[in-house]
Design a binder for these strands. Structure first.
Lengths: 208, 208
DNA sequence: TAGATTGTTAATCGATTAACAATC
DNA sequence: TAGATTGTTAATCGATTAACAATC
C-alpha cells in the first residue's frame, strides 16, 4: 500500500480528497478526472495526479478515476477500514462535544469511556450512556481494556501528567486538545488540535 | 512590521513561538538564545533565527533575544494587541465549549452573542450570561453590531447557507468548525478547524 | 578584548507545477 | 480510431539547513 515514501504534505491532503470524493459519491457521480476535481477543490490537477499516483494506479488514461473505488482506497490508506476504541479524558464541554459527535462513531471511532477528575459533576452529560469514570481509575481501566486512542480534553498541566499513564497503558495514539506539546515514545503518535493557535492565525490573517 | 513577505509556514509557527515565550516569561527567564530555544522547541536554531529575522532585528549578537520584548512583538504581529468581537453560531456542545473557554477572552477575543436555530433548547447554557439569539435574528444583529469574527459550530449545510449573511454583515473572519470549505470574498478570511480530518490523520499515523 | 550569538548568504532539500509520452 | 486523460519525468519554486562574517 505504501510503496513510495508518502510526504507529510500528502497525508494532510488525503482527508480532504476523501471528503470531496464522499460528496461526489453522494451526488451519484461515478467517475471524475483530475481536471474536474481540480476545479472543485481549488488545487492543481497536476498535484492531484501526483498525490494519487503515490499509492498506485487508481486512474485510467482517457477515463479518469472511479469515484467509489478511489474513495474506498483512500479510506483504507487513512485506516478507516477498521475500527478504533477511544477514551475521552475530561468530561467538560469540549470532552462532551467530542463524545457526542455522531460522525466519529459512524467512521468506526467508538468512545468506550470518559474520565474526569470529578465524575459526579457531569452526571448524565455523556452520549448514549458512555460512563464517566474517576480519573484515578484510569490506570486500572487501561490494564483491563485495549484502547487505541485517548482524547485529551483537559488543561496543559494535567495533560502532561496523564500522558505517561496513557503510554504505559498501551494507547497507540493521543488526540491532544491541550495547549501543550507532549513527549511520547516512538510507538505512540500525537495529533494535536491547538485551538488557541488556530484563533491566533485567524487574527493574524485579519490584520494582514 | 511586515517588511519582507512572510510565508504561510512561518505564520503557522508563530503561535507556537508565542506559547513557548509565554512559558519562559512565566518562569522568569529574561533572555534566550536561538540555540537554547531550539533545544526546547525541537526545531533548528537556524530556522528560529530565519523566522524571527523576517520581522526585524529582535535579537542581539552575543546576547540572544529578550524574552519579554520578543513575546510582545510576536503578539503584535499576531494581532493580539487589540481586541475582537465574536459571535458563535450554534449553541450545541461545541459552541458551548468555545464560548465557555476562558482563555480566549483573556487574549481579547470577546464573545458578544450566540445564535441557534432553536435558542430555547439551550436555555442557560452559555457562559457569563452570553445571550442565545434565534438564528433568524442574525442579519438584523449584524446590522446593529460590529462583529470581527464569527465562529461556525454548526453542520456543513447550514454553514454554507449562513456564510453569505456573515459576509454581508461585515464580519472580517470566520472560524469554521463545519466539515466543509467556505467561499468568501477576498476581504474576509476563513480559518478552518476540521476535526474529523484531524482524527483521520491520527488514524493514518497509527497504522503507518 | 574574547566569547557568544545573531543576521544573512549560500547550499540543500522537498514540494509543486509543467509538460508530454503512454495508453485507455 | 481519435480524443481524453493519466502516469511520470523534468523544471520550478519555496522552505529548511548550514555556514560564517558581523557585531554585541
Amino acid at each position: 500500500m505504501d510503496n513510495k515514501a508518502i510526504s507529510k504534505a500528502v497525508i494532510n491532503r488525503l482527508p480532504r480528497y476523501y471528503r470531496y470524493l464522499g460528496q461526489l459519491l453522494d451526488q451519484g457521480i461515478e467517475r471524475i478526472s483530475s481536471g474536474e476535481l481540480s476545479r472543485r477543490m481549488n488545487v492543481t490537477a497536476s498535484q492531484i495526479r501526483q498525490d494519487l499516483n503515490l499509492f498506485g494506479g487508481f486512474g485510467q488514461q482517457g477515463y479518469g478515476y472511479n469515484v467509489a473505488h478511489l474513495y474506498e482506497e483512500i479510506g483504507k490508506i487513512l485506516g478507516l477500514d477498521r475500527s478504533y476504541s477511544l477514551i475521552v479524558i475530561g468530561a467538560g464541554k469540549l470532552g462532551q462535544a467530542i463524545s457526542s459527535y455522531f460522525g466519529f462513531e459512524k467512521r468506526g471511532f467508538k468512545i468506550e469511556a470518559m474520565f474526569d477528575r470529578d465524575p459526579d459533576k457531569y452526571g448524565g452529560v455523556s452520549y448514549r450512556g458512555t460512563r464517566i469514570h474517576p480519573l484515578s481509575d484510569l490506570q486500572e481501566y487501561l490494564h483491563d481494556h485495549v484502547i487505541d486512542i485517548a482524547v485529551l480534553a483537559i488543561p496543559a498541566d494535567p495533560a502532561r501528567t496523564i500522558t505517561p499513564i496513557l503510554v504505559d497503558g498501551g494507547v497507540r495514539g493521543i488526540w491532544n486538545f491541550a495547549h501543550t506539546d507532549l513527549e511520547v515514545p516512538d510507538n505512540v503518535v500525537v495529533q494535536s488540535v491547538h485551538l488557541s493557535e488556530s484563533l491566533m492565525q485567524l487574527s493574524y490573517k485579519i490584520n494582514h
